[in-house]
């Protein structure tokens, strides 16, 4: 009986952190998960360790700078073979706002395998706990066999800045969102049937500047912060939509019609003449307003 009890006693899962050159946002929030009762990793049966060789779960923050690389790889080499590696924040996955700097050598995946990503900039403690729980589940599945199960978490209604949402129906293809995005998280592609927008959640830093400057509200910040996912799915974490071309009612050229939201933003109460403008190409709009196309 006694032996049985000892075997069942919960041995804490040890978490080890490596900062590869982060802004310290993720690191300070991870510190919260060791200091603040509400978010303590103890509730997941974990505790932090200062020894790389004890790492059951490895938490990595930062975009991986050139200068930090050697030390990061040295520490990584000390960690056990069977640990689960978690990329915390978008920096290790995509470089976030620091991508393409001469001093950055990420993404992390170029140097070592990653198992779980926790997007966010920084992720809130609840998101960190969800990501660590996902890593625990992966660890359990690897040891016991079977597929990892994604556990549902209680959702709070706190107005956190989470995943961006895109409504192609109100997009006017002005591309101000891409212009103001510091993280290069937004791409426009002109296809055969329309213009498509792709927003990559692993690059987005959730600042909401795109949504702030969007004239029609096509991009909006949602409260959905639960974005942890297996690293294998990193490139599928996207928001996407297509603004279809429509023929110009004047000449038939394919154009992006102006969304009603834009007309209402520009003219408080659009009259039928103004409404007609939205389905005309620029040349036909000139024809309609000044009679001849301007040279």
């Amino acid at each position: 009986m006694h032996i049985q009890a000892e075997e069942n006693a919960i041995v804490p899962v040890r978490l080890f952190r490596i900062n590869t050159g982060s802004c310290n946002g993720c690191d300070v929030e991870l510190a919260v998960t060791s200091a603040v009762t509400e978010f303590d990793v103890e509730q997941l049966g974990c505790r932090y360790t200062e020894a790389a060789r004890e790492a059951d779960i490895l938490l990595i923050t930062g975009p991986l700078t050139v200068r930090a690389r050697e030390e990061v790889l040295r520490l990584y080499a000390e960690t056990p073979q069977d640990k689960v590696t978690v990329a915390v924040g978008v920096c290790p996955v995509s470089g976030g706002v620091f991508r393409d700097s001469y001093a950055v050598d990420g993404p992390l995946e170029r140097h070592l395998p990653v198992d779980v990503n926790i997007p966010g900039c920084p992720p809130r403690p609840q998101a960190l706990l969800a990501g660590i729980a996902e890593a625990l589940e992966l660890r359990r599945a690897r040891r016991e066999g079977g597929a990892p199960v994604r556990r549902a978490l209680p959702v709070d209604n706190f107005p956190a800045r989470g995943r961006l949402s895109y409504d192609a129906g109100s997009c006017v293809d002005c591309r101000i969102c891409r212009h103001v995005c510091a993280a290069g998280a937004i791409r426009f592609e002109e296809g055969e049937t329309g213009v498509s927008l792709t927003l990559w959640h692993n690059s987005c830093v959730f600042c909401g500047l795109c949504s702030h400057y969007c004239p029609t509200g096509a991009l909006s910040v949602t409260g959905d912060w639960r974005l942890d996912h297996p690293a294998a799915d990193a490139f599928r974490q996207v928001e996407r939509g297509e603004v279809p071309y429509a023929p110009c009612v004047g000449c038939g050229e394919p154009i992006i019609p102006a969304a009603p939201q834009l007309l209402h933003a520009a003219f408080r109460r659009p009259n039928p003449d103004i409404e007609r403008l939205k389905s005309l190409c620029p040349a036909c709009r000139q024809q309609m307003s000044i009679g001849v196309p301007r040279r």
């Binding site: 900062n19 050159g21 982060s22 802004c23 930062g62 975009p63 700078t65 200068r67 930090a68 030390e71 706002v97 620091f98 393409d100 700097s101 001469y102 001093a103 950055v104």
Partner: peptide, 13 residues
């Protein structure tokens, strides 16, 4: 230097 991300260069781009 460990956290040098070349930010003063990035801001010019």
């Amino acid at each position: 230097g460990q956290v040098h991300r070349g930010m003063e260069h990035l801001v010019m781009r």
